[in-house]
Design a protein around this nucleic acid. Structure first.
Lengths: 150, 150
DNA sequence: GTATATGCAAAGGGTTTGCACGGTT
DNA sequence: AACCGTGCAAACCCTTTGCATATAC
């Protein structure tokens, strides 16, 4: 098993951050919800500790992101969604028509990313990737429809 | 040469939209500025027609996007940037540390995207792609620094 | 003439910030 | 005891919306 979650407190401490109930709860919420917006995380956290504030959630997510425990991706046009950093990175496929979000294993993308790194020097943060387009179903539906999709 | 811009008025008309000075000016601004936020587009447009309103820019960009004349990508955490749809799609590389944005030819990415389509059926909108990570310079700088970058 | 597009102003969502208090180290 | 983290409220940025007027067709 990975040491990502086991070492969460050490991760924070070694970066000079303190351990607080809020930070623990936010990390647990992100872990449990899988992909969640700050608001959703707040709701989850408030199930346990009603007094926690939205701004604390934002500040906490920033800290957890800095120490590498969570990442976020922009899957809608609205709020970003946060998820824990895991061993097998995944990428997000967001359908512009039906708004469905798929997570797929990042392996093939990683190959592209490695090529890019060799060629260009740019190192992609794979967990942050959200690709927009049409899911299979919506792409099939639009076979005969001339339309431009965002 | 492409018929993208030559046919701009026909594009609009055939989709049932009207031709207005505002729509022409916004399209020209996007073309000229290459990558610009709605605010920047407004500023450019107001150089010619001072009375144009921000909400018109938003509504116009939506229309131009619907008919396939422009697209947008989310390169910062702030406002999206719009650019004209061109023959050779490009993707955006956004450095999480120095915030620099590179545009690179989408050819290699297209290969990945084609594979994804065969495997999964998902059709990626290439122009919309913004990859976050570290540019060469920042990646080199952080070789010896243990740090997690968003 | 009729429907669409625009300008204006207000409201809305999401996020950040200043400050005083409370908690961790 | 010192400093960091939190709650609260206000401010901020970006975007959308309702409505009356103007304009393209």
């Amino acid at each position: 098993m990975s040491d990502y979650l086991e070492a969460w407190d050490r991760r924070l401490r070694s970066a000079g951050f303190r351990i607080t109930p809020q930070r623990q709860l936010v990390l647990e919420a992100v872990t449990h919800l899988q992909h969640a917006t700050p608001e959703e995380i707040l709701a989850e956290v408030q199930g346990t500790a009603a007094g926690v504030n939205l701004s604390t959630v934002y500040r906490t997510l920033e800290v957890l992101e800095q120490v590498g425990l969570v990442t976020h991706a922009h899957i809608g046009h609205g709020a970003p969604t946060y998820h824990v950093v895991d061993e097998i990175p995944h990428i997000h496929l967001v359908c512009s028509r039906c708004r469905a979000v798929e997570s797929i294993e990042g392996t093939n993308f990683e190959k592209f990313a490695n090529g890019l790194e060799k060629l260009n020097g740019f190192v992609v943060n794979i967990s942050h990737v959200a690709l927009h387009g049409l899911c299979k179903k919506c792409a099939d539906d639009s076979q005969n429809v001339k339309e431009y999709v965002i």
